[in-house]
Write a protein that binds this DNA or RNA. Structure first.
Length: 474
DNA sequence: ATGCCTTTGAAGATT
DNA sequence: AATCTTCAAAGGCAT
């Protein structure tokens, strides 16, 4: 989205041209802004109420024989829903019962056990920026995930944007205003003295770093560069092993909107972190690495695991530095077998090819939004089923103001741009077929009666000019 | 163990 | 050019 490129042209070329979706996302929202704002302020209970209602109505509509309800009930509230008067979006149509599992009843069950299942914040108490503490299990898993995540991080990227973020007006007056992000930024750059952390959760021991990251949740560049627990770089790495594929000065402003998962912040900000120090101003990315705390010369375990030494696909970026977007083929099973295979080194060429780590797609704006807000929704409700949560998040996404959405689009644009810089030869095509696709027959069934075009909307709407120029708000 | 569900957006593939 | 398809995250659930 060129309008989003406040840099007046940006790093170059087509990358600055956001996908049409980004423009379309703001369509039909002009006169709906007021409604959206009201809805947005209505709180989670309304989200759920709408969702429940719409699900019920949609199901009833389907059962009624027409197959498609004319208006999805109260669910129309979030956006004014003028567009659903005549036709229901393909996405909503997909909510209708289909296939062997009849999702709507499932979701109704998940959402409709009772309104009490969702525990919204009291009316007098606004939704906290920081979600309630996580359960011990989730807490430890996230901590573990974060640690492993750090192992996959490029040590040569750093919170420089964070520093910029502190200076950037949009970071002090936008989506993260008066949130923990500000504190997070500060802590990232001005961490408490070693041992000053008062959080009862001890920092995971470094020795864990030698363990393979089994079950490590996939992290995006967003996670990585906003990681509150950046990977400490060994002195030798920081001095001589850091290779950068490109000099990318125009990336200097990346990730100025720091966040990471909301759910991680409460404890992560209180973790004691080693002091940060800038690496090399000559680097494409300015680096801030935690000063090594290990004895000089001591091996740095975080980079010793074979699975962490997988080369990036970046030409001139030798194998040493893993990247959060790089993951073993698919999950922990593969990771374990990957280790074994590395030990035996007896795989066939084809097998090796199959074991090549996957470079994931960069997250789009909505994915970034979901990643950030999921924990919040989970905290507000007892829901855990992602399908239901995603529905809520989808509605909230539409209820966001243009300014709020624009920030995620900008973040996503930067993520794509950085991804492109890091993996010049990568294509989304590379990952095609790596997921087992649902059967063609089933998919056709699901799309029968309504097709979603490349813009996720109706062709006639896609043809409409986008009234919104995000540039004006950035 | 694996895939589906569900969301939006991006991008490759197909018509 | 327009449309279709796949994948990105996530976690419960069905097979």
């Amino acid at each position: 989205m060129p309008q989003l490129d406040s840099g007046g042209g940006g790093a170059g070329g087509g990358d600055d041209l956001g996908a049409p979706d980004e423009l379309l996302a703001f369509q039909d929202e002009g006169e709906e802004q007021d409604d959206k704002i009201r809805d947005s302020a209505a709180g989670p209970e309304r989200d759920l109420a709408e969702l429940k209602s719409s699900l019920v109505n949609e199901s009833e509509g389907a059962a009624g024989g027409a197959g498609i309800p004319g208006v999805p009930g109260a669910g129309a509230g979030a956006r004014g829903e003028a567009e659903v008067g005549a036709e229901v979006s393909p996405r909503r149509r997909r909510l209708l019962p289909r296939g062997r599992r009849a999702p709507p009843p499932q979701l109704r069950a998940a959402l409709g056990v009772s309104s009490a299942q969702c525990v919204p914040a009291p009316a007098s108490a606004p939704i906290p920026a920081v979600p309630p503490p996580l359960t011990p299990l989730r807490f430890s898993l996230q901590a573990l995930g974060r640690e492993h995540a750090a192992q996959r991080l490029f040590p040569d990227k750093l919170p420089e944007p964070l520093e910029d973020g502190l200076k950037a007006p949009e970071c002090t007056s936008g989506m993260y205003k008066e949130t923990v992000y500000s504190a997070f930024n500060l802590l990232m750059h001005y961490p408490p003295p070693s041992g000053a952390g008062q959080h009862p959760q001890p920092q995971p021991p470094l020795h864990k770093a030698n363990q393979p990251p089994h079950g490590v949740p996939q992290l995006s560049l967003y996670d990585h560069f906003n990681s509150p627990h950046p990977t400490p770089a060994p002195a030798d790495v920081s001095q001589k092993q850091v290779h950068r594929p490109l000099q990318t000065p125009d990336l200097s402003g990346f990730y100025s909107l720091t966040s990471g998962s909301m759910g991680q912040l409460p404890h992560t900000v209180s973790w004691p972190s080693p002091p940060l120090y800038p690496l090399s101003p000559s680097c494409g990315y300015r680096q801030h690495f935690p000063a090594p705390t290990a004895a000089p010369g001591a091996p740095y375990p975080r980079f010793t695991h074979p699975s962490l030494m997988l080369g990036s696909s970046v030409p001139g970026h030798p194998a040493a530095i893993p990247h959060p977007a790089i993951v073993p083929p698919s999950g922990k099973q593969e990771l374990q077998s990957f280790d074994r295979n590395l030990k035996t080194q007896a795989e066939s060429k084809a097998e090796k090819e199959a074991k090549k780590p996957t470079i994931k797609k960069p997250l789009n704006a909505f994915m970034l939004y979901m990643k950030e807000m999921r924990a919040k929704v989970i905290a507000e409700c007892t829901l855990k089923e992602s399908a239901a949560i995603n529905q809520i998040l989808g509605r909230r996404w539409h209820a966001l103001s243009r300014e709020e959405q624009a920030k995620y689009y900008e973040l996503a644009r930067k993520e794509r741009q950085l991804h492109m810089q890091l993996y010049p030869g990568w294509s989304a095509r590379d990952n095609y077929g790596k997921k087992k696709r649902r059967s063609r027959e089933k998919h056709q069934e699901s799309t029968t009666g309504g097709k979603r075009n490349a813009f996720g909307t109706y062709p006639e709407k896609a043809a409409a000019p986008a009234p919104f120029l995000p540039m004006t708000v950035l």
